[in-house]
Design a protein around this nucleic acid. Sequence first.
DNA 1: GATGAATGAGCATTCATTCAT
DNA 2: AATGAATGAATGCTCATTCAT
Lengths: 206, 206, 206, 206
Amino acid sequence: MKVEQERSIARRQRIVDAALEVFSRRGYRDAAMDEIASEAETSKGGLYFHFPNKQAIFLALLDRTARLLRERAEEAITAHDGPLARLDAALLVVIRTFAGHRSLARLFLIEAFGAGREFNRRMAEIHAEFAELITRHLDEAVAQGAIQPLDTKLAGKAWFGALNEVVTAWVLDDEPGRLEDSYPALRVLLLRSVGVLEQEGPRTGV
Amino acid sequence: MKVEQERSIARRQRIVDAALEVFSRRGYRDAAMDEIASEAETSKGGLYFHFPNKQAIFLALLDRTARLLRERAEEAITAHDGPLARLDAALLVVIRTFAGHRSLARLFLIEAFGAGREFNRRMAEIHAEFAELITRHLDEAVAQGAIQPLDTKLAGKAWFGALNEVVTAWVLDDEPGRLEDSYPALRVLLLRSVGVLEQEGPRTGV
Amino acid sequence: MKVEQERSIARRQRIVDAALEVFSRRGYRDAAMDEIASEAETSKGGLYFHFPNKQAIFLALLDRTARLLRERAEEAITAHDGPLARLDAALLVVIRTFAGHRSLARLFLIEAFGAGREFNRRMAEIHAEFAELITRHLDEAVAQGAIQPLDTKLAGKAWFGALNEVVTAWVLDDEPGRLEDSYPALRVLLLRSVGVLEQEGPRTGV
Amino acid sequence: MKVEQERSIARRQRIVDAALEVFSRRGYRDAAMDEIASEAETSKGGLYFHFPNKQAIFLALLDRTARLLRERAEEAITAHDGPLARLDAALLVVIRTFAGHRSLARLFLIEAFGAGREFNRRMAEIHAEFAELITRHLDEAVAQGAIQPLDTKLAGKAWFGALNEVVTAWVLDDEPGRLEDSYPALRVLLLRSVGVLEQEGPRTGV
DNA sequence: GATGAATGAGCATTCATTCAT
DNA sequence: AATGAATGAATGCTCATTCAT
């Protein structure tokens, strides 16, 4: 039993991995189940044993990615003190994660929209989640008097959008530089936008 | 001849109008040439007389939209003095244009990606153009001493991204409020991000 | 215009003809659209231009067949006088029609059921129509005093069923004799069942 | 061993029961092995342990049903004297059996055809068997002088067909009445068709 | 210029059957 | 005996594109 369950989970994993590969190579619509199957070293039927349809695979991939980002961000957050430092660390971690997984970034920021009306709601939710995370910390910063009161909801969206665009441009760049290198300047802009003029960057490694 | 040319141009117009309608109703992939044809009150063959293929229609639509935005932005720009005021006016005009054409916004910000790998390059260019417009004015503001030197290229992307996200969230909102209402706060954020603390909004009408 | 319409109608005809061929060769479910297409010397897309789906082709075929039978039956009916003679002529015509088109009989009596729940209602209607035709004439025979009063609704079903089974057995027979040869005896049985002991057969040719 | 054999037989029973349920719910083609398995509270593998394939399950069900009908009919037959009384009793028992098992009737009279070319032969046999049972008794009635000589083979088919159609119409009726109520009138028709004008109905219970 | 009929490659999905455990 | 994971052939349907009229 145990063994079989583990194998089944592993197979799902492999399918989702393959899906990432194929979706980011072809885009959602042009990705054929056949190709995902062979990339996952299984058969088309195998795919349908583990997932009800193509959409479900994409959704699983989306959720896995969102979870990964969220977990890393939260980890970074708990490792720091003070709302702005935490936010700072979280954004850096997001940048770094995408920097290390360009195809994942492409999937998350580009393919996910346009994959069909059905995904728009889910993507809106994911965007909203991240924007809210930012909003929450800005609210706390306001509460602690670290920054002046402001429309934190809007700021959450704006920060997320700024980050988003920087990463998107990097994804679509034919000869991309190092994504992480954009962060320091972006950080200054974002902090200034809420009225923080100086603050040291996070001391997280590398 | 003259008359026929005009008629032909009018027909193209009607097709592109129909395309906007259908693409934003269904998304690029799910929009059928049949539906565009009937929306344009012509036949499938008629479409292919005026455009070589589906992609070309979409591209024409994209370019028409980009041109519209650019023209309006430039108009606003020439109506103002000083790089920051001009930028301010341009962004406001973009916001207002999208506010008045939600389906166009959806098309431009959501469908355009995911319409297929072939469009990504074009979209990247369009994004870049707008980011560069911002960068240009920020550069000028730096040159005039209105703001402190900064990474204006990055700031261009960030500003555009912030704007983008605010509009996107509005497009995907089931019960959207008035998009224009977000602008004043966004404006403050953006200006602050480049170190400008106070500045009156543009006096553009309504 | 005229020419094109005619051609279009001819094509539909050809498709329905091909469908009869293929459905009665393979049965409804095992008939592939591909095979119907090639039998009709057109392409799969062509099929779908003229019919919305497989079911619609089958239904068109069913209706065409039912219409053919009805028309021939009515023709025979108007050529005779007296309800029993008319009925007699109608049944004979049905028998003869099936005798001349074994695959059509197979389709109509065997494939049509079992082609899927969706067809059952239609088939029930068709059966009912024929049974009612019989019932109507029996009613008239009663009204004219040619036969004693009886449950004509039930008799309609029973007569139709008897006919049906005789034809079905012939269709499924590996070495079938001449279907028409069964008619005289069947005729005697049916007439006797409503109390008519003697009556000459119809004088319709061959 | 004994116990295990019994268990195995019971399992087969359960599978065939489940098959009846599912086949008459969905029709042969649309019935999935998965659904039969879960209805039988076993697994797909379990099905294939007891039967070589889907067809075999259907055949087993068909044969079980035919056997049931035959046994009940024979029972009724031996309980009566005289060929016509026996026939009468047999038909009544068939009617009553179907009346009590509508899904079984649907399966036997409707799904069984159209389940695929492979079943046609078997169904033809089953029909023939019942027709022959009728023929046999009519032959005996002729031999005993109870009825005048006639084409008893044809009459067998016709009787069976009449019965068949009455039951089929009832199966396909959305708001069916009591099937048994049709029998007395049908009986009169059938008997008259072979020249018997009066005869009391069978005295079989209820 | 315009039309509508035709094409055919492409694809998601289903499902009976197999088989290692 | 039983399970459930895996297989892969089969198929209805879509749709951009072509082209004779």
